[in-house]
Amino acid sequence: MNPLAVLLTLSSVLFALGLFAVLTRRNTILVLVGIELMLNAANLNFIGFWRYGPPDPQLTGPMFVLFGIAIAAAEAAVGLAIILMVFRHTRSTDLNASNSLHG
């Protein structure tokens, strides 16, 4: 079996699961869980193509993963800070609860 195909299948499934969570969950924090899964699927692709691709002295794949992890951490921190702020106003993390601009 082609190891790259296994990796890519895994990352496709992870991405689809993340998307599913983003679409169906109503709790904002769990939407963030879905986003993390999708980001991780992308990282997995980079690692896969670095590992089973042509040799790359510039290490582009791992570099991208490194930056991706840093960005994901930043995204989670800001996301959770915003969620906590919204929670303070509406006492809820439900996405539908923060609809005060809704006419």
């Binding site: 924090i29 993390e36 791992p62 490194l66 992890i69 959770l80």
Partner: peptide, 29 residues
């Protein structure tokens, strides 16, 4: 897969910070 550095960074950042932050936010809310 041989990317030990990335795997350990993943542990430190994703498990140690991101996942813990998420469950912490779940605890607060």
């Amino acid at each position: 897969l041989g990317a030990e550095f990335l795997g350990l960074v993943q542990f430190m950042v994703y498990v140690g910070a991101v996942a813990v932050l998420i469950v912490f936010a779940l605890l607060i809310t």
